[in-house]
Design a binder for these strands. Structure first.
Length: 565
RNA sequence: GAGCGCGUAGCUCAGCUGGUAGAGCAACGGACUUUUAAUCUGUAGGUCCUGGGUUCGAGUCCCAGCGCGCUCACCA
């Protein structure tokens, strides 16, 4: 956290960026309650792997937390709990795991009682918890992990569970009207664990024994009667009462949730109030939509994964996406990535010159917890230092026609002689992303064609003409050679184009042929420069492959493989 | 049925606490490159969905309407 800065502190009081708006609610809440610390919670259901929504929730909650710390001069301690609902029963076998039979044999048990199908952890729940933590750690989030199973077993929830038993009728009174008739007939906020099978039982409760803190129920299959303690992990709660109980037991002050949970938040809040506590502050963020405007869901597998995003864009660009307009539905698809990357770079570049007020409204302040790094500038020839945009890299990589970072760096150095992967590590990461983008979006769109007889002859001659330049990186000389060949095979007939020495020019058709036959593109780079970077020998090999029909065949095979995948 | 959000240039969208409409791409023109990419630069393009209200002043705030989209009502 940045050291106290009076200018920053006063700017924070009037800051209107949404994390500050949220943080101000918390300041008022603390003033009213007199609490000495603030607890933020994010929830996680470990029946699957962490996904992009998990990232968003933690990232956004962290932004509110940072704003709160500035607002209160860091005088009130804050904690962020990542809570895993790992006592939940396994309802169905996920598609994306090995050893499905193993899981199928353990349905309905708490996730922490289901063996790990990956064989690396003590349970499926523990495995997914570990994945969550590794995931959050990889982004450097500051948080405390908490397991529902451990909390229940350790008795951490016991006092609140007893309270809920006492107010059982109030809780039922809140829940029942929200349910349909057939469901409300059998509903219970408590789910006892079966003493013999270990299953999380969703059964009607025959009797609630408040003094003993037990429930009396029957196994619907065997008819056997059980009396189960709700304490120490003998039972867990249904989701909405569970959420409410957790808020009360842990003292959660802030938790945000998706729009799909609006009604749940409402009910859980009522339950929390019935337990005599104030439900946490927070807000409902909008859901992400896929390219067709549908809700992104884990089960459907539509939309983007975190891995997808990080293939083409930086973590910071993903954070920016999460920062922007959390209350509006946004399309989350590949094509939004380049813009987020560039917007981030632009905000970062502006930051140093901004005053405190503007800084607090700058997304990079929130993304980097008040301490954004210096922008990585590049000094172009005769130009002022600036950030190289991702859009420019994407253009460059398309014309460079390469999956090699070194070739792309060659093009970059033409623009900015001083730059290298060593001096510009951030830019080097962007290069990697741009290459991935080329590989997956640009290359598949290429359209090679076979050369005509005339083009074939010209290309063969070009290859010969280049031979004496082996090893040369003289772009001008190479370009002259390209023109020389073109002049004899594809002279300009319009009379418009002229060479510097007044000789006839070269037809556009020559260049078009080069790009379409050799690069599979309608347009391309200045060819002499391309050869200089790509290499004379490599270019001659490229021509040979084109004349042998291999480029066309390879690309068709590439496209076919892709279509099959 | 209930809730949430959106409607601004051809497209995608910015417009923070009300003060003369902005960006990127696309289009068209120019510079540079021997005529292709990049880069630089110029031009054009908008009843800010409609109708009221508050105000000296509304894209922005309030109300109503129209249109579009999403979510929830079994489980989490």
């Amino acid at each position: 956290m940045t050291p106290p800065d009076p200018d920053l502190l006063s700017a924070a009081q009037s800051a209107s960026a949404w994390p500050f708006e949220e943080a101000k609610k918390l300041v008022a809440r603390i003033a009213a309650s007199g609490k000495r610390e603030v607890l933020f919670e994010t929830g996680y259901g470990p029946s699957g792997l962490p996904h992009i929504g998990t990232f968003g929730e933690v990232a956004r909650t962290t932004m509110v937390r940072n704003a709160f710390r500035v607002l209160t001069e860091d005088k009130i301690p804050t904690r962020l709990v990542a809570f895993s609902d790992d006592m939940d029963g396994l309802r169905k076998v996920p598609d994306n795991v090995p050893n499905k039979e193993l899981l199928a044999a353990n349905l309905n048990k708490p996730l922490t009682a289901v063996p790990d199908p990956f064989g690396t952890h003590s349970s499926f729940g523990a495995h997914n918890n570990a994945r969550l933590r590794a995931f959050l750690d990889s982004f450097g989030f500051e948080y405390e992990f908490m397991s529902a199973t451990e909390c229940y077993r350790a008795g951490r929830f016991d006092a609140t569970l007893r309270l809920m038993l006492e107010r059982y009728d109030d809780v039922m009174g809140i829940m029942l009207p929200s349910l349909r008739a057939e469901r409300s007939a059998t509903y219970s906020p408590f789910l006892p664990l079966h003493p013999k099978t270990g299953h999380v039982m969703q059964v009607p409760i025959d009797e609630v024994r408040r003094e003993a803190a037990t429930l009396v129920w029957r196994d619907p299959e065997t008819g056997e009667r059980f009396e189960t303690s709700v304490l120490g992990g003998g039972a867990k709660l249904q989701w909405k009462p569970d959420w409410a109980m957790r808020w009360v037991a842990l003292g959660v002050d802030y938790e945000m949730a998706g729009k799909d949970l609006i009604d749940s938040v409402k009910l859980s809040s009522e339950i929390a109030r019935a337990l005599g506590a104030a439900p946490p502050d927070g807000f409902n963020y909008e859901l992400f939509l896929d390219e067709k405007g549908q809700k992104i869901s884990k089960s459907k597998g539509n939309g983007l994964t975190i891995e997808d995003w990080l293939t083409y864009g930086t973590p910071e660009s993903l954070s920016l996406f999460m920062y922007n307009k959390p209350r509006e539905a946004k399309r989350l698809f590949f094509d939004v990535i380049p813009r987020q990357v560039d917007d981030y770079l632009t905000f970062l570049e502006k930051y140093p010159a901004q005053d405190s007020k503007l800084r607090l409204g700058n997304p990079v302040w929130h993304i980097h917890a008040g301490a954004p790094p210096a922008p990585e500038l590049v000094q172009g020839a005769g130009e002022r230092a600036a950030t190289i945009s991702f859009a420019m890299l994407l253009n460059l990589v398309a014309v460079a026609n390469t999956e090699e970072p070194s070739v792309l760096w060659g093009f970059i150095r033409r623009y900015a002689p001083g730059a290298s992967p060593q001096t510009h590590p951030v830019l080097d990461r962007l290069v990697t992303h741009a290459l991935a983008y080329y590989r997956d979006f640009v290359r598949p769109a290429k359209a090679y064609r076979a050369p005509s007889e005339a083009e074939r002859a010209a290309l063969a001659e070009l290859s010969e003409a280049l031979a004496p330049f082996a090893g040369s990186t003289d772009a001008e000389a190479l370009q002259a050679a390209v023109y020389e060949v073109g002049r004899s095979h594809f002279p300009d007939t319009s009379g418009k184009a002229k060479s510097p020495d007044g000789r006839p020019g070269v037809s556009q058709a020559w260049f078009s042929a080069i790009y379409q036959v050799l690069l599979g593109e309608a347009r391309g780079p200045r060819f002499g420069s391309f050869v200089a970077l790509y290499g004379v020998a490599e270019t001659r090999a490229l021509i040979a492959k084109a004349l042998a029909g291999e480029l066309l065949a390879e690309h068709q095979a590439f496209v076919a493989t892709r279509a099959a995948a």
